[in-house]
């Protein structure tokens, strides 16, 4: 099997939306999420030489991201804990550790439904990454960001009928990808 190589210069375009969606449901703050993603990329760059080429770039970045999110919770908990310690320890016998428990159990952070929603969102982004790059870009602008036809046409210097051909191909590819990776999973 060929070893996978890292291409940091493509990371932002290829993975930032994916990482952002993963992060935002966990930290629920745009600025914080952005900082964490930036840290993730930089940490990835720094430990580039440790990458063995066995996982995909995405998996590898997600692994780093997870650690960064945990770090973030540790940090806010250690400062928050001082203020809340008294309240939580006085309340009942063993519940003082609740804050820490809350961050450790990743799966308990969201209700099942929102987990499913999040997974679907990530599946969609993953599919977008697997289809033709230009089609994906335009599809994303039109479908996810709701940019109107005229603006996209001007930006990419294409005619509306070009745009609809691209959208058509992208929609077909996306439907196929989700069919195999989501509906028939």
């Amino acid at each position: 099997m060929d070893k996978i190589e890292l291409h940091p210069e493509t990371w932002v375009d290829r993975y930032s939306d994916y990482l952002y969606n993963y992060t935002i449901v966990r930290v629920n703050d745009h600025e914080v999420a952005q900082d964490i993603i930036s840290e993730t990329f930089l940490a990835g760059l720094k430990s580039k030489d440790n990458f063995k080429g066995e996982a995909t770039e995405r998996t590898w970045l997600i692994a780093i991201l997870k650690r960064k999110i945990i770090d973030y919770y540790r940090k806010i908990n250690s400062s928050k804990g001082k203020a809340e310690m008294r309240i939580s320890y006085n309340d009942s016998n063993n519940e003082g550790d609740w804050l820490e428990e809350k961050i450790q159990d990743d799966s308990a952070m969201n209700a099942e439904e929102s987990m499913e929603n999040e997974e679907l969102g990530l599946a969609i982004l993953q599919c977008l990454d697997s289809i033709n790059e230009k089609q994906a870009e335009i599809f994303k602008l039109k479908t996810l960001d709701g940019v109107d036809t005229e603006t996209i046409c001007n930006e990419y210097n294409i005619t509306p009928s070009n745009l609809w051909v691209i959208i058509h191909r992208a929609r077909k590819a996306m439907a196929d990808c989700l069919e195999t990776n989501w509906f028939n999973k």
Binding site: E9, Y20, Q34, L42, L120, L144
Partner: peptide
Amino acid sequence: TIKSTTIKTLCEEDKKVLKEKL
């Protein structure tokens, strides 16, 4: 399917900042 999720994309400005740092 796409409407049922809440996909959030980073805007171009945010991506630019990320790219520059990297």
